[in-house]
Simulated scan of single mutants.
Amino acid sequence: MSDKLLQVEHLKQYFPAGGMGKNRKFVKAVDDVSFFVNRGETLGLVGESGCGKTTTGRSILRLYEPTGGKITFDGNVILDVENKVKVDMLPYRQKMQMVFQDPYASLDPRMTVGDIVGEAIDIHKLAANKKERHDRIISMLEKVGLNSEHANRYPHEFSGGQRQRVGIARALAVNPQFIVCDEPISALDVSIQAQVVNMFEELQEQMGLTYLFIAHDLSVVKHISDRIGVMYLGKMVELADSYELVARSLHPYTKSLISAIPIADPIKARASKRIVLQGDVPSPLNPPTGCRFRTRCPYADECCAQKEPEWREVEKGHYVACHHVEKINA
């Protein structure tokens, strides 16, 4: 059995943005992204808002139908656009789940918490009778720090942190193998964020879960992830072991993200050098030619404008897309 639970190859997600025929325009939200996730690990995905992180997660679960690429889950091809392979996703919905970013918008306000968690159990016919269904719901709520009394309440009766726990319980209810965590703590108070992150780690250990953990806060991702991928304007620019990426990043964009991580020690904070990028992120509707980061990169030259950098493994397990990675890190 392969260690790779999920394999994503050349994933593309283009959204129409006006025009007709030859003049039709597309937003290239995800453009030729490849990576894999091993069983039982957490792959973190970071980048600025709008870089394509959430779209990548939703495309993997086929909440969006990808424009191109191939997705293999647990040894089975669930999507291959080029060869017109597209399997029925219902059986895979039990194995692949998602925790959404906004706990206020992702729960139906007309349903009780018990029915929210129990809906997936009903769809996948995982309970033989009402008692088994009820016991499973309560078990899931208790796993996330809630109790049986919460099952009869409605989402508006809970705090943001509790609502997100309900969303996590809903994802766990079908006993999945893989969960896409789409910025699951960004809408929560800072005091609650650590509790939820620790809970994710405990659940992973108890249930053998595999995560794709999407966030824009690199300090959080560094804590929870085994490996980290960095996205910029629809492209993956670097991917490596978590410690390796933070200690020895190779791409200029990753270096700037890491320099922005807050340092608790005031002496070290004063000694650290912040890398401030110039300019704004270009529009995904009209991305720069060649390297998409070149308009903000201090190392950009004519080669970067003319040729798109190759996604390559420069060291074992360390992937980068940059023409000048050896020169920059010499």
Score class of each variant (00 low, 15 high):
Met1Thr: 13
Ser2Gln: 14
Val8Gly: 06
Leu11Tyr: 01
Lys12Asn: 15
Gln13Asp: 00
Tyr14Asn: 02
Met20Asn: 14
Lys22Phe: 03
Asn23Thr: 12
Lys25Ala: 13
Lys28Ser: 10
Gly50Gln: 13
Ser59Glu: 04
Leu61Ser: 07
Leu61Ile: 05
Leu63Ser: 13
Tyr64Gly: 09
Tyr64Ala: 02
Thr67His: 12
Ile71Leu: 11
Asn76Met: 13
Asn76Leu: 12
Val77Asn: 07
Leu90Gly: 02
Pro91Met: 00
Gln94Cys: 08
Val99Glu: 07
Tyr104Asp: 04
Leu107His: 07
Met111Arg: 11
Met111Cys: 04
Val113Ala: 05
Gly114Glu: 08
Ile121Thr: 04
Asp122Arg: 14
Glu142Gln: 14
Gly145Ile: 10
Asn147Trp: 14
Pro155Tyr: 03
Phe158Trp: 01
Gln162Ser: 03
Arg170Gly: 04
Arg170Val: 06
Ile179Asp: 07
Glu183Ser: 09
Glu183Leu: 10
Pro184Ile: 11
Asp189Leu: 01
Asp189Ser: 02
Ser191Glu: 10
Ala194Lys: 13
Asn198Leu: 11
Glu205Trp: 06
Leu209Ala: 04
Leu209His: 06
Phe213His: 03
Phe213Pro: 06
Ala215Leu: 05
Leu218Lys: 13
Lys222His: 15
Arg227His: 13
Val230Gly: 12
Val230Pro: 14
Met231Leu: 13
Leu233Pro: 06
Gly234His: 01
Ala240Cys: 09
Leu245Val: 05
Val246Leu: 15
Ala247Phe: 03
Arg248Lys: 15
Thr254Val: 07
Lys255His: 03
Ile258Gly: 11
Ile258Asn: 12
Pro266Asn: 04
Ala269Pro: 11
Ala269Ile: 13
Ser272Met: 09
Leu277Tyr: 04
Pro287Arg: 01
Pro288Lys: 02
Pro298Ile: 02
Tyr299Asn: 00
Asp301Pro: 10
Lys307Phe: 08
Glu308Asn: 14
Glu310Arg: 15
Gly317Leu: 01
Tyr319Thr: 02
Val320Lys: 00
Cys322Thr: 06
His324Asn: 01
Asn329Ile: 01
Asn329Trp: 00
